[in-house]
C-alpha cells in the first residue's frame, strides 16, 4: 500500500511539473505581460526598466529555470495588483473555500444519501419518483441561477439572511472557522446550500442506482432465504455494497466542488480562492493565476489519491498492487 501511494505521489509530482511548464509558457511566453502594468503613454526607457526588472528580457528557457527555482522556494512571484506574494494570497484564502466546500459536501450527503437510498429501495413510490425528478431538476439548474434565486427569496424578500461575505471567525480546538459563530452560520448558509445542490443531485442518483442494483442482486435473495430481517438486510447488506462507489465519487465530487465554488464565491462575495481566481483573471494578474492553478492541481491530485486509498480499504476485493 505504501508503495502504491508513493508511486501515485510521484506521478502527481510529474503532473504538477508538466502543469508548471504549461502555465509558464502560456503566461510568460504568450502575449505581452507588460501591457497590463504600463499604460500606452509610458516612455520606452521606463518600459525597458520594468522589463529587465522582472527579468523578462532574458531568453525563455532561462526565464523558465528561474521560474522553477522560485517555485521550489515557494516563491510564485508577486501579484501585479496587490504586490503581495502570489502563493501567499492563495493560501490565505484557502481555508474559507475549504470551509464552504466541506459544509456544502456535508449538506449534500446528509440530504442526498438517505433520499437516494429510499428512492432506490422503493423506486416506484412517491419518494422514489420525486427524488429522481428532483435530482434531474438540480442538475439542470445552473448554480448562478440558483444563487440568484436563493438571494431573492431569502435575502431580499424574506430578509432572513445576508447576501454576502463571510461571517466572524472563532477558534475551537485550534481550528478557526466561521461555523463556530452565529453570524458565521447565518452567512454560510446560503452559499453552502447553493454549492451543495449539484453534489446532492449526484448523491441521490448514485445511491439510488446503487441500491436498486443491489436489491435485485442474488446475494440479497440469498440473504432473504436465510430468513434475515428486512432491517438487517437494508442496513448491512445493501448499504455496505454502496459504500465503495459512494466513497470514490465523494472524492471526485469534493475536488469538483473546490473548482465549482468559483461561481458561488463570486456571487456571495465569499472570500475564498474561487473569488480570487476570477478577479485575477479579470485583471490579468498572472502570477496569482499561476499560483492558483498549481495549487488547485496539487490539491486535486492529493484528493484523488486519498479517494482511491479509502476505496481500497473499504472494498476487500480491490488490491492496490493492481490485481483485482
Amino acid at each position: 500500500m505504501a508503495v502504491y501511494v508513493l508511486v501515485r505521489l510521484l506521478q502527481g509530482i510529474l503532473l504538477v511539473f508538466l502543469m508548471s511548464i504549461v502555465a509558464f509558457c502560456a503566461i510568460y511566453a504568450v502575449g505581452n505581460p507588460i501591457s497590463v502594468l504600463v499604460s500606452p503613454t509610458t516612455p520606452q526607457s521606463v518600459i525597458d526598466k520594468v522589463v529587465s526588472g522582472l527579468g523578462l528580457d532574458r531568453p525563455l528557457h532561462e526565464q523558465y529555470l528561474i521560474f522553477l527555482r522560485n517555485l521550489l522556494d515557494g516563491d510564485f512571484g508577486y501579484s501585479y495588483v496587490t504586490g503581495q506574494p502570489a502563493l501567499g494570497m492563495v493560501l490565505e484564502r484557502f481555508p474559507a473555500t475549504l470551509e464552504l466546500a466541506l459544509t456544502a459536501m456535508v449538506i449534500a450527503m446528509l440530504v442526498g444519501v438517505p433520499l437516494g437510498v429510499w428512492a432506490g429501495y422503493r423506486p416506484n413510490g412517491v419518494v422514489g419518483r420525486m427524488a429522481s425528478g428532483f435530482s434531474m431538476l438540480l442538475i439542470s439548474l445552473p448554480p448562478f441561477w440558483t444563487a440568484l434565486l436563493l438571494i431573492i427569496v431569502f435575502s431580499i424578500e424574506a430578509r432572513l439572511l445576508p447576501t454576502g461575505g463571510r461571517g466572524e471567525v472563532a477558534s475551537v480546538l485550534g481550528i478557526s472557522s466561521s461555523l463556530f459563530t452565529q453570524d458565521g452560520l447565518r452567512r454560510i448558509l446560503l452559499p453552502a446550500v447553493n454549492l451543495s445542490l449539484f453534489p446532492m443531485a449526484m448523491f441521490i442518483r448514485l445511491t439510488s442506482a446503487g441500491v436498486r442494483e443491489t436489491v435485485s442482486a442474488s446475494f440479497i435473495r440469498f440473504a432473504r432465504a436465510k430468513g434475515l430481517s428486512t432491517g438487517r438486510i437494508l442496513s448491512v447488506y445493501i448499504l455496505k455494497n454502496i459504500v465503495p462507489p459512494v466513497v470514490t465519487v465523494s472524492g471526485i465530487i469534493f475536488g469538483m466542488l473546490l473548482a465549482f465554488s468559483v461561481i458561488t464565491e463570486s456571487i456571495f462575495s465569499w472570500p475564498g480562492t474561487g473569488h480570487l481566481i476570477i478577479k485575477s483573471i479579470q485583471t490579468s494578474d498572472r502570477p496569482v493565476v499561476i499560483a492558483y492553478l498549481m495549487f488547485s492541481v496539487s490539491i486535486f491530485i492529493v484528493i484523488n489519491i486519498a479517494a482511491d486509498v479509502v476505496c481500497a480499504v473499504v472494498d476487500p476485493r480491490i488490491s492496490l498492487s493492481g490485481s483485482r
Binding site: A23, A26, I277, S280, I281, V289
Partner: peptide, 8 residues
C-alpha cells in the same frame, strides 16, 4: 478557467 486565464 485555465484556457481563459491563459488566452483571454
Amino acid at each position: 478557467l485555465v484556457m481563459v486565464a491563459l488566452f483571454g
